[in-house]
């Protein structure tokens, strides 16, 4: 077990603890799903739920109240280019 704190680097405010941010997803629907109803179903409920690096949005609720985009590895919670 590792005890550690995930930190995110906000381009405006600087490096802050993850608790200052709200997580937001960038939904993806596979191109192979073409039929409109199937796309609607996928958009509403399905998730890629990637085990690896995902590009996602985070909202800096405690600071500038702006969204930022970053890549995070869901297997480790590492943020590859995290300046924190």
């Amino acid at each position: 077990m590792t005890i550690r704190r995930l930190r995110i680097s906000c381009p405006h405010c600087g490096v802050r603890a993850v608790e200052e941010f709200v997580h937001g997803e960038i939904p993806t629907i596979p191109e192979g799903i073409v039929e409109p109803e199937a796309r609607d179903l996928d958009r509403a409920f399905m998730h890629t739920n990637a085990e690896g690096v995902v590009v996602e949005r985070w909202f800096h609720a405690f600071g500038c109240r702006r969204w930022l985009t970053l890549a995070r590895d869901t297997r480790t919670n590492d943020i590859p280019d995290n300046r924190g």
Binding site: M1, R5, H47, E56, T74, R75
Partner: peptide, 13 residues
């Protein structure tokens, strides 16, 4: 925790 993850790390927060 709100952000999806597969990590087993445990947090102080």
């Amino acid at each position: 925790d709100r952000a999806p993850a597969y990590a087993y790390d445990a947090g102080h927060s």
